[in-house]
Design a protein around this nucleic acid. Structure first.
Lengths: 162, 162
DNA sequence: GAATTAAGGATACATGATATCCCTATTTTG
DNA sequence: CAAAATAGGGATATCATGTATCCTTAATTC
């Protein structure tokens, strides 16, 4: 069970978009070059973000993407669910219903206890992702990244932002 | 990102083995019939449990599987990791290294902040699974399951346990 | 009107999950 | 001792999914 690489790509793209000045847009082409990713395929991940309403887009030259809300309002869970879907990581096939000791057409009273435990763990994972916003991430990056590279990247992005 | 169905199968099998009297064994054939699963393929999941040291096996007629330790010592995480592996659910490809603004052969100081956040969420998931043992599950099942089916299944298992 | 962009459909390929079959060594049963 | 049953594991087939590329369309900017 491994998350798609598109999740990683989308998270890094949102991290860049979170640093973009208000009203500016950054294109798929620029995001792909900045991260060394295939442009056409990265586009699919960005489309997922767009369909989930996390980013706003404009067409034409100087078009591209920007966040649809403030970085402090966008969580890691938003991005992960936009790309991976909102379905649970554990699917209950209700195999207890195959028990030959049960009467035919026996109707289950409640959900399977094993499934409930797995779903609670799933929810713990989502809760951890919901706690972290892209404002939090921005502060961490600013503390950790080499100041020269940070400034250089910012300039690089601004030069390509429409 | 969905867990393999083998995880569900292994969890249900361990729940049954946890209720087995000391020194008795239950075969793949019986476990497959009880859950309505393909015997040969279920066998692969049980082999994973065996390789992880979670169950003990014996050969020959009246052979099969029993838990290698007390139900209170066996956690959901043990079983999930035996089947799915211990690798993290998020893999960092370190795409920040592709940033064209970086000097050639720039050496990263630490791990990527995005990866760290994803790994913390992964750890929250594992912590939730580590908290639940098969002794806990047994109590829950005893409370929830129809007493007749519970007793009938117990008899069914005992009749087939070597 | 020309260039650029997001959106999305179609396709190809690799990988992994699911499933079955078969063989071997070991152990209990008769 | 012989036969039956078992776990273990290798080989193979099938299907779903992730990854990647190509192409078309509509909208927008210059």
């Amino acid at each position: 069970m491994i998350l798609k690489s598109q999740v990683e790509w989308a998270l890094h793209c949102c991290a860049i978009l979170a640093g973009l000045p208000d009203g500016r847009y950054l294109s798929t082409k620029a995001l792909a070059e900045l991260h060394g990713l295939p442009k056409e395929y990265l586009s699919k991940a960005l489309q997922s973000l767009s369909q989930a309403g996390l980013v706003h887009t404009t067409l034409g030259p100087s078009g591209g993407y920007r966040l649809a809300k403030a970085p402090a309002e966008l969580t890691f869970l938003d991005v992960v669910e936009a790309v991976e879907g909102k379905g649970r990581t554990f699917v209950c096939q209700n195999i207890r219903a195959n028990n030959p000791c049960r009467p035919k057409d026996y109707c289950e009273s409640g959900s399977c206890a094993i499934a409930r435990i797995m779903w609670e763990a799933d929810e713990a994972w989502r809760t951890a992702l919901r706690k972290v916003t892209f404002a939090d991430l921005g502060k961490t990056l600013e503390q950790e990244i080499d100041p020269g590279i940070w400034a250089g990247t910012f300039d690089w992005v601004l030069k390509r932002a429409g």
